[in-house]
Design a protein around this nucleic acid. Sequence first.
DNA 1: AATGAATGAGTTTTCATTCAT
DNA 2: GATGAATGAAAACTCATTCAT
Lengths: 212, 212, 212, 212
Amino acid sequence: MAVMVKAVRAAARKKPKQERSLAMVEALLQAAARVFVKEGYAKATTNRIAAAAGVSVGSLYQYFPSKDAIAVELLRRYRDGLVALVAARLERVDRVSFGPIVRDLLCDLLQAEGINPALHRVLIEQVLRTTARREMLGFEERLEAVIVGALRASDADLDHELAAFILVRVVLAVVQSVVVDRPKLNTPDLVDELTRLVVGYVGFDVERRPRR
Amino acid sequence: MAVMVKAVRAAARKKPKQERSLAMVEALLQAAARVFVKEGYAKATTNRIAAAAGVSVGSLYQYFPSKDAIAVELLRRYRDGLVALVAARLERVDRVSFGPIVRDLLCDLLQAEGINPALHRVLIEQVLRTTARREMLGFEERLEAVIVGALRASDADLDHELAAFILVRVVLAVVQSVVVDRPKLNTPDLVDELTRLVVGYVGFDVERRPRR
Amino acid sequence: MAVMVKAVRAAARKKPKQERSLAMVEALLQAAARVFVKEGYAKATTNRIAAAAGVSVGSLYQYFPSKDAIAVELLRRYRDGLVALVAARLERVDRVSFGPIVRDLLCDLLQAEGINPALHRVLIEQVLRTTARREMLGFEERLEAVIVGALRASDADLDHELAAFILVRVVLAVVQSVVVDRPKLNTPDLVDELTRLVVGYVGFDVERRPRR
Amino acid sequence: MAVMVKAVRAAARKKPKQERSLAMVEALLQAAARVFVKEGYAKATTNRIAAAAGVSVGSLYQYFPSKDAIAVELLRRYRDGLVALVAARLERVDRVSFGPIVRDLLCDLLQAEGINPALHRVLIEQVLRTTARREMLGFEERLEAVIVGALRASDADLDHELAAFILVRVVLAVVQSVVVDRPKLNTPDLVDELTRLVVGYVGFDVERRPRR
DNA sequence: AATGAATGAGTTTTCATTCAT
DNA sequence: GATGAATGAAAACTCATTCAT
């Protein structure tokens, strides 16, 4: 969730009304994220979300036209945050720094602070049923584009597009599974392995750590 | 075969039209799969499923105690099939045959025969909210166990458990994403890349195919 | 339930088919009585009743056109039995024998064997909604008629009709409440008191038993 | 006043339109009473009750968690009213005033004001299946306690508890039967007879009115 | 005749959304 | 703007009844 903050707080500042509005929207989104993860989309009633945010249902509908709209916005922010995070990390990557930067990125992603795959999992199916489907589908593509850029900058010797497609799925899948289902596996060893997997696949050398 | 509680109870009586019952259960499951994928879990009402199967709601409830039970059974079958497929393929793997066998397995998985990731995606969130959660979570573990066996048989030089965990996620994620979202990418090149990824990660040599 | 047997077993004897039919009807009625009392009318499904009788629903509908029909028949038999019992007891009543006969009758009624007020209570509301309402409403009247006869035979000095109306309600109410809700009160003392109440009301002398 | 769980919870918040809520609860209870009596418990669907009250089903469920809850509340009110009435009448009874007070009480009861035995009859069976059974069973006990008090105050020479048990059933049964089934019998003569029955049973003298 | 699987109308109940205050 | 009571469409599920075997 932390991921999805930066982008926002931009416009509007003076009018206390707008400030209140913003605060309410934030409160609602955070409450919704909590309730969605805890109860699942179906059981997350708008009343419950509003209550969790400390406001009335009526107010919720003042800011979001529907329950779906909340999910869409939540997913959008989540994804934007994720893309921004990855893009920022990979901004200055090159052949030499590739390994360490990947490692750092993986560490970021594996911190529950930087990513909330449980939320993603709850939302994805619902949002895809939405008219916002189009918009949402761009997400992986945007991530891929960032990766393609990094591969190009590192002059990796493989099909950049295909590799980016694969890498996005690989990393997200492992990270999500670890964070949601196997927090026990969230260790430096895992980071090592994933780094080795990625760097090796891309074709750069990695010194193997001797097996325990 | 195991078809929820009620069906079992029904099957426990003599066996009058056991055939008809079985056919009905199959029809219901297939209809449910279709409706779940097409409409999403929420919109897939029991009435709609029954209608799609050409039977009455009452009959549906004769064989499944609830909508969730259908989802659970569907997921169970899907996963059982997947585990069986992988286990069969890897049965006689060794260091030498590792590469080709992995390649063949990937081909199988990418053929989407017997694999329906769209369905999987619709079900997973819902079923995880179910009491069947435990049973379902065992799926990845079972797959991992199979992989661990293969790694051991191939005498791979890495942490078998951790590697198995990673490989299961990696392969499933890429395969499912391709099948569901990017059928265009479903080419021999993809198989090559994935094979290379897996074999390379496990530490066996792969001859790089020259980049196009 | 025992009350409601005598009247029936009349016609038919030879044909084994009819015998089986009769047996089935009996089994169904007894099973229904049990299930109605135990579960209440609403929860007493026809399947459950059939199962309790050891037959199939289909067979149930062979003999009774509807669930209501079972209730109606049950109530009819119950009431017929009760009227018959009371009539038999009061047949030869006169001013002298009035007290002892009333006492005996009360003893009969208070034996769970002779009366099943719980069943009566479950059925009455439902059956009154039935088209059989008319027929059933005659019950109290028939009992009253019997009582009127007894009062006349005993040459009691009061409004026979009004007294009969009152006595029927009084006795049934107390008996039902005792049997259903307060079996602990089902003692000789109760019989004494009720006898005294009735005999006193009718205007005949009763020797008061000294208070404990 | 005590209006089921949800209502209480609702009432616990500030008190916005407490009035409207109360009015709605009243409307629902009255509508329910009407529908229960007219259609029977089974046919009295929550939708029908809500419609009869001129509100939506949703509102019904805002105030009552279930159909049973309505029945329970209705029965509770009915019984509370009855106990209060009897208790008020008997408050200052003594040996001398016993007869006239009983007569007045019977008149009250037979006026059917505040007494609705038809409703009572519909509800009793259903509510007894409820978890509220215990509470409801307390009703007769409370009435009996009031009667015991009256008998003691009047220094009646009999087993107070047993007599109270009997008297409660006797009076209620006759009164209810008259009101529901034989309004024609609702005459001064009936009051006389019942008074005579009660007073005679309790052991006080009653001057017999000469028979018509 | 007996069986019990199949039917589907009808019930209870929930919850996204509206709107009077 | 904020509130939360009211709405009512829609869903899950039951069970009396039918009918093919």
